[in-house]
Design a binder for these strands. Sequence first.
DNA 1: CGCCAGGCCGTGT
DNA 2: ACACGGCATGGC
Length: 229
Amino acid sequence: MNSTRRLRKMHDTLFAAYGPQEWWPARTRFEVILGAYLTQNTSWTSVELSLANLRKARALSLAGIRHLTLARLTELIRPSGFATRKAAAIRAFVQMIDREYSGSLSKLAATPATTLEARLLALPGVGPETAHAILLYALDHPTPVADEYLRRIVERHALLPNPLPKNRRTYDQLHALTRAAFAADPAQRHHRLFNEFHALTVVVGKAHCGRTARCAGCPLAYDLENSCN
DNA sequence: CGCCAGGCCGTGT
DNA sequence: ACACGGCATGGC
């Protein structure tokens, strides 16, 4: 079986095992965006500490962030690590929204897909995964999100030639592979499928696909062909 | 104590 | 183009 069909089957297996995830875990679009920045190379439990601090400071909105000094913002998000860089990045995002989109996330979301992706990638602290997470989960654009868990799954199950280095080229391969895996589905469902697939990837990754393999009980090891290396 | 976490960026080759 | 190290804190 080819790699796109194997990845599509993995989605079905994960969905059967874990059910719908209904991501992203946040109330508002801007909260999704904050979470996307804060969770970079950081566990979600640590992100929740920062989000709780921001909530208490009434800073879970564009207006809330605008009223904070950079030092105060840095202090509030300290629990999730890399606070100096992430605070500057979040501030740069808000300034971009204010200067170029009249402070409106809706206007940002209404930008054509290719322009929008390029604009996000040009922001400090925004690489491909963060850009695509914002596009998919905050701005409702139907684009796949690839991450380190997906890279490990695809590498260890040898869906693409090994090794699979951590670089931009690999990211783009994983992104394209995911898009191809759902290409046969109705276009109307792509958004929902990309949403669920990334969420399911993270769920199975946290439980069974760490840096040091802990594959026991992984639902992806359902036959010999899919056993993990 | 050590390793790990839902990346990104600057530098050297 | 690619490898490599720095960035930082909290959970286990």
